[in-house]
Computed example of a mutant assay.
Amino acid sequence: MLLNGPIWILLDSSAFGGIESHVLELAKGLTSHDQLVTVMFLSSYKPEPPLMAQLRDANIKIEVLDQTYTNSSFWLRLKQAITEAKVRPVVIHAHGYKANILLRITRLLAVTDKIKLVCSFHAGETPTGRVRWYDALDRFSAFLTEQRICVSRKIQSKLPCSSQLINNFVPEASLVESTGNNIAFVGRLSEEKGPDVFVSIANQMPETPFHIFGSGKMEPELTKIKSNNVTFHGHQTDMASIWPDIDILLITSRYEGLPMAALEAMSRGIPIISFALGELPSLIDSGRNGWIVDSRQQMIECLRHWRALTHSEKMHIKIQAQQTIEQNYSTQVVIPQMLAMYQR
């Protein structure tokens, strides 16, 4: 199943979110399967995107197109990278609307012969403003790439052409036993992620500690309405040292595909209570490895139920959560599927 040439992963990145987390695990997973991987960034930003440092730490090659090809316009840089490459890639896999659109324009420039072109769709929400038009162009030009990957059926339903559902994935991790009763929100503080819903639930459970890991434009508003049991920890570039302090994760989003935070938590045996969004009902078998709920009140009831369970009852749910990831959403399971798709 080994490919006989490099794989380029293409994206635009200025912060660290779900796409960046996915790209990091994809690059590491392909490398662990003896593939040659380069992560190509469309543009440079100040400060440097956090993903770059994490890729370097994993010894994965990176290239920034606007630094290497300074004399080319944005839309011609990928073409120049391909034509000047000592060894042409056998696959270019794009993530996010900017990278997806650039990849298709490069195909129209007739320089991608014998290169498999793949694009991934990650966003469950419909953006607003100018980005809405880019999102529409991304979806309606998707037929120009040979393989199209979606992380949820809802995202698939928005594409006007066929696509393949491939799960997000994370590496296997050790089971953690929380040191307390901390309830967590992990993600961007923006409307689609529903941090205001998380804070409203916290306000109804003042005796319980709630923790928010993330930053975003809603933070000033949230600090005004939060109760004293809510702590803001800001943006995190690495959650590894934080997960052991989390007892349970709430997903309070208004839109989702298959969030990486959910997979990272469950891989460590941290259960999730979530609304029925995207692929989360496929991930969570309610009552066995976590809970799917329909309302804020049900989420509060599940939290109180979880806190009332015995240690052995909690451990049973934690083990089921971890096994769900190992069997269906782990790097070891999904990367072979990705490699097989690259070769179709």
Rank of each mutant, 00 (worst) to 15 (best):
Q147W: 05
S282P: 01
I92Q: 09
S241R: 09
Q323W: 13
D138M: 04
E125W: 08
K114D: 14
R296L: 14
F232L: 08
S157L: 13
Y69I: 07
L11T: 04
A94I: 08
M260N: 02
Q343A: 13
Y134T: 13
F210Q: 02
R88G: 09
A58S: 14
Q54G: 01
W291F: 15
E172R: 14
C119L: 13
P49R: 07
V118L: 09
R132F: 05
R104E: 06
S312P: 00
Q320I: 12
I251C: 01
D247M: 09
T83E: 13
V91M: 02
R268W: 01
A110Q: 15
L103E: 08
L283V: 04
V64N: 11
P244L: 03
T237L: 12
E264H: 01
S253Y: 02
S43R: 13
F275V: 06
Y255L: 08
A308Y: 00
S44K: 11
I251A: 00
W75H: 13
V131T: 10
N203W: 03
I242R: 03
E221P: 00
L24D: 01
I270A: 09
A184P: 06
D12V: 15
D238K: 04
G129P: 01
I105W: 12
I183G: 07
S73T: 12
D196R: 08
Q67M: 12
E256K: 01
L175V: 05
N203L: 04
L283H: 01
R132D: 02
K98T: 14
E25D: 15
P6A: 08
W243T: 05
R296I: 13
E264V: 02
L30Y: 06
A173S: 12
N71L: 15
D66S: 13
M266T: 06
Q337I: 12
L3I: 12
G269W: 01
I251V: 06
I335H: 05
S227M: 11
A240S: 13
K226L: 10
H22L: 15
A262K: 13
T237V: 04
L189C: 07
L42N: 05
E177F: 06
I300A: 08
N167I: 10
R88N: 12
M260E: 00
K217N: 14
